[in-house]
Amino acid sequence: MRHFVIVGVLVIIVFLATYFGLTALKLMPVEASAQSIVVDWMWNLDFVVMCFLFALIVVPLVYSLIVFRRRKGDTSDGEHIEGNTKLEITWTVIPLITVLVFAYLGAYSLGETMAVDPNALEISVTARQWSWQFDYPEGFTSNELHLPVNRQVVLNMTSLDVIHAFWVPQFRIRQDILPGRVTNYRITPILIGNYTVMCSQLCGTSHSYMTAPVIVTSQADYDAWVQSQVTAAQAAAAAGGPANGKLLVQKYGCLGCHTTDGTKLVGPTWLGLYQSQVKLSDGRTVTADQAYLVESIVSPSAKIVNGFPDNVMPKTFGTALTQSQINDIVSYIETLK
């Protein structure tokens, strides 16, 4: 009896010490979304049980090792106790009830994180190896995700290649992004600040660097940002030329495979491409003049650069872009020396 009392008291002490000690360490990042509050509520319930079970097992384990250790010279055996059916049933039924309650709570909190606001702001997200693109309803494209605070937003996400995943630790929620399909990510930011979206499904070599800024601002700042983006896009389209080309290559996802800084991705870099000598896979060498650049956009398979695969670049740009848009893009590439 004395053993039980001591162990019981110790279990309670260790339970409280681990729970409060560890919670004081701030285990989770800040709560920046309405959903994160629900997730943390569920986490906290889980954590209480985890700490309690930890104490419930470890305390009698360590206690037995110390108190019931074999004394020097003692060669006798322990007490012959084979089991106790009542105890076994107890520690089957109580955990059973506990897990059923937790499964119910898990379903409940999952439902809360999925709650739909019909007035949610919709933004399209395109993920590709290894970049993010955000298309706003106002018709412009950005590589940063700006969100107004306290308004639900639903991201309609798709991937151009492999599976990616959208995760902002401060928002807690995570959703995979699949090729050929749209998945949704619903979130209500509640804290103004700068965060980072990280791709959290292994997506190839540069997976580590597939991140983008997420900027939560007040509604007024958000409106001002949207307005500035719309104006910039209109001005560039009206002026044409390299400035518009630069916006177009973002919007049409060219930068997922081509870089402007000399790095080699799936496709050749554009840095220093104009007027350079390009070695082709059939052994010829050609000069990358304007006609070559136009042809490479409109019919990518006509000339394949040595060391790069055929049939990777989409063949649809010739119809998706107007002639003047193609000219703008080419004029932009020509500026990359």
């Binding site: 009698p60 384990l61 037995s64 090792l65 019931f68 074999r70 006798s76 055996d77 007490e79 105890l87």
Partner: peptide, 9 residues
């Protein structure tokens, strides 16, 4: 745990 309890460990 019940096996350890009151053994001669």
């Amino acid at each position: 745990i019940a096996t350890l309890w009151k053994g001669k460990i």
